[in-house]
Each structure stands twice: as C-alpha cells, then as structure tokens.
Design a protein around this nucleic acid. Sequence first.
DNA 1: CCGAATCCGGTGGGATACTG
DNA 2: CAGTATCCCACCGGATTCGG
Lengths: 127, 127
Amino acid sequence: MIGDPRGPFAATCPTRHLLDQVADKWSMLALIAIAVAPRRFNALKREIEGISQKVLTQTLRRLERNGLISRTVEPTVPVSVTYAITPLGRSLATMMEEVRIWSVANIGDVLAAQSGYDQRASVATTS
Amino acid sequence: MIGDPRGPFAATCPTRHLLDQVADKWSMLALIAIAVAPRRFNALKREIEGISQKVLTQTLRRLERNGLISRTVEPTVPVSVTYAITPLGRSLATMMEEVRIWSVANIGDVLAAQSGYDQRASVATTS
DNA sequence: CCGAATCCGGTGGGATACTG
DNA sequence: CAGTATCCCACCGGATTCGG
C-alpha cells in the first residue's frame, strides 16, 4: 500500500522487504518460542534445534530491529540477555503459531500428497 | 508431533521440513496469488515482481508436490498450464493472506522501529 | 554467558540459450 | 507459452576462535 498499490507483490514496496525478513523458518520458530515466554540466548539455541549461533544472532537482531522483540541486558556477571515479545511481535506471532499448528495438523495430508507426486514422477521416468 | 513431541522445533520432525518449504516469501506470494484465482505461469511471473523463471518453477513444483496447488495442462498449441489452489492449499493460503494484510497494516510501526534502532546504533558507534 | 569476527565450502538463484 | 539445461558467482550459513 505504501509506494505501490500492489503491496508485497511489488518489488519496491516496503512490505516486500518486511516479508523477506519475516517469512523464513528461523524467524518464525524464534518468534513463536519467544512469544510463549521470554527466553535467554542459549535457551533459544537449545530449543530451536539445528540453528547455529551465528544465524540465531542474526535472526534475533533482525526481529529486534523490526520492533517484534525486545532485548534486555541484565548487568550481572556474566551478563544475561533476555529476549521478550513486543505487542507488535505478538500480533504476528499469533499468526505464525497458527501456521505451526496447521503444519502439525496437516502433515499427514502433505506426506500423502508427496508420495503420490513422487509415485507419478517415478512412473513417468520409468515408462 | 510425528516422531518428536516438540513438533517443528525438532530438526527430525517432518513438520520442520514442511515449514522449511512453506515459510519463505516466494511460496507465500505464489500461494496467495493462486488462491485468489487460478493463474497461468507467465501471469504469475508478471504478478510476483522480481521472481526469476527458474525460482518460480521450483516454487510451483514444491507447492504442487505438497498438495497445496494443482497443475493442469491444456493440450492446446502452444500448451497452456494453469495452476489452481487445492482445498489443503486454501486453508494455508488463508493464514498467509492474514500475514500479508498484517504486513501492510503494520509496516508503519515496523519502519518506525527500524529507524529508532538504526538511530541508537549509529549513536553508539559515533560516541 | 552472550556475542563479534573470521574463514570458507556449498548452494541458491540470476542470466542466458535452447526445446516441445 | 511453459518450461529444461547450463554456467557461474554472490551470499548464506556452519565451524571455529576470540572478546567483554
């Protein structure tokens, strides 16, 4: 709506950049996790299996920059850093959570569709 | 829930792979566009600004394999291929559309958060 | 404990040319 | 029109090391 009436479909629209930053799996998982309860860095790293520390840092920075999460440093020794959801972030996290629930609920249908597709593909190749 | 009670957060869970394939901007935009009305290949390419033909093909294949869209070839000369949403795809597209609407509605807040963040960052560097 | 910085291999994806 | 095939390079992201 800003800059181009076609919204995210236009390459020049700011909403496109926003989607770029928000529509990836690591951002989704991180946002969902933080929305449940505030977390510390290593807690997130342990929870989001397979994410590297570098990518987690990048992801958290981006979410923070976009105002979706907050980063609080407590001056203990050693320092402890807590990430929490913001109101803006929560509104998005709610939708992300719906997608997560959907994927768990519909994984059966998807796997069935996949094997059907692969079946047809292998038949087409073998024939 | 399948294979690991932690769902998408577990690297080994099939739902993680599903999220991998669905939670990216091109899949989102394509799914939303097709959900509005069935489209032909080049119509999608024109509508989703900035996507390359190669990536569009990959994206459509993946969506089709996961049972989210259907691909229909009409034996005309030259052939015309139509992509349509499936019931399964529509249920997901509905959520994607909500995210798209959210991004348009909240882009102002996000841009404000960004400039605030960048402001603080540059001050910290300059000081 | 939380992160920055560096190195580096694999690959996602663009550009181009060709086919049914 | 709707792809496939090939080349090729930038960049993503993993591993490791160092700093506050």
